[in-house]
Design a protein around this nucleic acid. Sequence first.
DNA 1: GACCTGACAAGCCCATGGCTCTTATCAACA
DNA 2: TGTTGATAAGAGCCATGGGCTTGTCAGGTC
Lengths: 224, 224
Amino acid sequence: MTENLAKRSVISKPRARFIRETADVRRQALIEATARCLAEKGVAGTSVRAICARAGVSSGLLTHYFDGVDALIVATYEDVGARVSAALEQAVEEAGADPRDQLRACLQANFRAPILDPDLLATWTAFWSLVKTDPRIAAIHADVYGGTRAQLESLLCAIVPEMPQDRARLAAISLTALVDGLWLEICLDSTTFSADEAQAMVERAMMLALGQWRDEWVDQSDRP
Amino acid sequence: MTENLAKRSVISKPRARFIRETADVRRQALIEATARCLAEKGVAGTSVRAICARAGVSSGLLTHYFDGVDALIVATYEDVGARVSAALEQAVEEAGADPRDQLRACLQANFRAPILDPDLLATWTAFWSLVKTDPRIAAIHADVYGGTRAQLESLLCAIVPEMPQDRARLAAISLTALVDGLWLEICLDSTTFSADEAQAMVERAMMLALGQWRDEWVDQSDRP
DNA sequence: GACCTGACAAGCCCATGGCTCTTATCAACA
DNA sequence: TGTTGATAAGAGCCATGGGCTTGTCAGGTC
């Protein structure tokens, strides 16, 4: 009793001042803190305390606004995924009206900021590692991946209307895989090749997929 | 005192029987248990107790044979990486003497067992998430990736000797990225496309990289 | 200006994690 | 067969994590 009183009045430090924020502001701050934690310290280092310390709030706020740390990670995935999609969308819009330019912009944007970012990879690998475990994460993944693939497919069909549907589908999958693989490797180890080289490789693959290559070096002997 | 004695003589169950194994056997068992844990439960679920339970040993053995759980994960990465490299190597050897067949085998083997395995992806994403944090993991990654890329490059040069060095390098990087991207996606979500389709896409990319495509559908209008 | 509401901070509780330490067990050798 | 030393089991220790409770203060309301 008395000890409790003494503790409160003497030992314990005064409670920190705080300002009230709207729910949206707090949620967004927590989401951004989570993304930064994932990027900097990986899944293992992304704890409630670490996230809240970064967000500048006490650890109680996380469960106040989200249904636990897992739900916050899911929300972060949604947010980061939407941001990446928006960056690609913006690149397409800035490319003008020619669908070929739009396709090129959509592919090349993966190798410029803000998508080309090792921190983003760290966030992404954290999500990948959760796809198997958490069906919500799997659903978001399917949504994001399917969306970009469908966009590539429609652009391909717009550029080459006579392209068969199945070929367009496989071409979109191939281009996506190439971009993902290059992006993964360059984020893991940026010394292997440069972003410019990645863009050149994607450009070449795009032209090959469209059947419109223009290349000084090819082996003509085996062509039909 | 007496309680301690009673505890030991009456309450505590007798210590489990065990057999002595060589250090190699124990190490390998722990490594395999770690790989299974990573695959099934992700990094978060890969604890000392979980690993040792899977390996059928007590938790004290981990620190007895490895310098902590981090070192065990590094050893597991080395082991899994070596196993993947060995599988690719074996595929090449079984392909015969033609370097074109060898290249094809090396690429296609990524979409057959034992490499095409969602559990392996789970293990791999765990490693990717550690590349930034742990320089030992980064070194192993650079080693494995560089090795396969160099092999592809030498095969490309063997098939088309007149291919410029820089193009062979970029082609090897592109093929690796395509394979990695397809492998990643098919392991994450096997409903998007099939392993056969993945092999077909890789086959096509390989022929295009060699400048030896033979394709019924191409747009001839824009070719030089 | 009192007070009411609820967002917020602080810290407790229990579970789990990594690692250590002691003790028990086994196998090899004399 | 007894001795011995390395191997192994398992309890324990300390740190950390997540969730929750409790008390408090900011900002609006009458």
